[in-house]
Design a binder for these strands. Structure first.
Lengths: 281, 281
DNA sequence: CGTGATATTGATTCCACTCAATATGAGTGG
DNA sequence: CCACTCATATTGAGTGGAATCAATATCACG
């Protein structure tokens, strides 16, 4: 298994069960892996979009830069995360994305992704699920900013980071690198850097976390989650469900004539990819 | 034309160009239209999900209810909006959705939607675009709550409502029913009801809006948009793009008469605002 | 006309911001 | 190895925007 060499395959196979055919398809995907450095822009809002990106190493983030010079951070991206899903259709990047650390990213051209999407239900589902997770995290951030106080907000963010990292980190090393400066955290949580600092101190005082530099140790995950009202279901519930349900795949006696007629239609399509809905499998 | 009788077709055809086959397919969809009343729950977080809902009349909203009794409003749903897209795959409702006003909703079973999705690229694209728009609105809300002060925040929300309604409202009647109580607005914008009231007064003082009861008149849309740093591209850019690029969808000879008839139809829509809001008419 | 939901207004409080000074740490070059 | 610098973080003092509390006021509706 050379999953390790193809980040897309690695990520998707963790989300949905793939048929051998789909695995082959994914393995056959061409992609370009390149090194990126901290602070480097991956793209800007308004850029034309023609590729999907998978972070293979390092952290990235998406943000909005406001006219008053401030910044709102929307999402953080960890190794394995797939960026640019929503832009598949519009062809235009929706916000600025940059690297927080050095790392490596893999680029897959949209044309190859389209082929893949047309050929595989599971891949479509997986990408949809990922989009779903990002939406859920965004909603969670909104709740933090709007309804939680500084300590709850920061605690929640830390819990989320830990949960996301948990499947990658070896065993229970209760500590991880969080490559966000206090400025970054402030921009994510809608606070000032000063107050991030104070809030960290407060959490430390309560014996909840320890932090030095960019290294975080969560001393009492249980209590931290409680104070943050953190529930990780929004991060992984879909995954559980998916492996059980076999989602979008045709559960029906489909209107086969329709499919046939549509297939004909699709012949006139310019970017003649594989073909239509693949009732395969 | 019975577009009006099938809200799904109506909405999707406004987003992407559909082939005759797809239109027929959509027309053939079975759905159940039912009346709903203000305050009625459409579903709760955790409910199992097996249907897509299209709002045909009235306003709805999705929200999270926190353990401390407070509430965060995530989204408002207007006539034409499609709910439950993200739940297609997980089969579980992600948050609570209720009606803000009396209205009517159409229910489409997932099984029929799955058939449709498998048969049509365009429909897949359209639903994806809709999901995209909701994500964009959520992000915008986050920016409001995190970065904008009360006046900007409220102004932005009003601009957004106006923009969303604009395509439904007959020409430039610069006023509309906004069936959100100040409590609802507070829950949406992360403020207190008291401050919503004061902020409305402030905006009124500046000659930007007038408001009585649930009726809003935006006196100076231009200036209001400026103060809110409002840019409507996130609401409709995808639409524009889609008709140009026709990414995933089949680039067919567009049924222009269809679109035309739909436009007309929406203009002559009865009860464009006549009875609609008023919490419980 | 009374009742309950909704909205306004004033007084007070507080959480988090801003400003400003200092500290720590990493990286660089002498 | 030290001095310098730049980015990052800490701490204190003062301020302010919005929350809270509380007392009316207005409106819809039966």
């Amino acid at each position: 298994m050379r999953n390790a060499t193809n980040p897309m395959l690695k990520r998707l196979s963790a989300l949905v069960s793939l048929t051998d055919g789909e695995i082959e398809l994914l393995e056959g995907l061409t992609f370009e892996m390149r090194k990126v450095t901290a602070g480097e822009w991956l793209w800007h809002e308004g850029d034309s979009a023609d590729s999907l990106l998978v972070i293979s190493e390092g952290w990235g983030c998406s943000a909005r830069y406001l006219s008053d010079g401030s910044r709102q951070l929307f999402a953080t991206y960890l190794p394995g995360d797939i960026l640019g899903i929503f832009e598949l259709l519009s062809g235009i990047r929706r916000n600025d994305v940059s690297m927080l650390t050095d790392g490596r990213v893999c680029e897959y051209s949209y044309s190859s992704i389209f082929t893949l999407l047309n050929a595989s239900n599971s891949v479509r589902s997986a990408l949809f699920v990922i989009a779903n997770q990002h939406q859920a995290m965004l909603a969670e951030r909104l709740v933090s900013v709007a309804r939680r106080n500084a300590r709850e907000s920061l605690a929640h963010f830390l819990c989320e980071c830990r949960a996301r990292l948990l499947e990658f980190l070896p065993d229970d090393v209760d500590g991880f690198q969080l490559p966000l400066s206090q400025q970054d955290l402030a921009d994510a949580l809608g606070m000032s850097t000063v107050h991030i600092s104070r809030t960290f101190s407060a959490l430390a005082c309560q014996g909840l976390v320890r932090r030095q530099h960019f290294h975080i140790v969560i001393l009492d995950p249980q209590r931290l989650a409680e104070m943050a009202d953190f529930d990780d279901h929004y991060l992984n519930c879909d995954k559980r469900i998916l492996t059980i349900n076999k989602p979008i795949s045709l559960p029906e006696p489909v209107a086969t004539e329709w499919l046939a007629s549509l297939k004909q239609d699709s012949k006139s399509r310019p970017s003649a990819e594989g073909d239509e809905p693949t009732a395969s499998s």
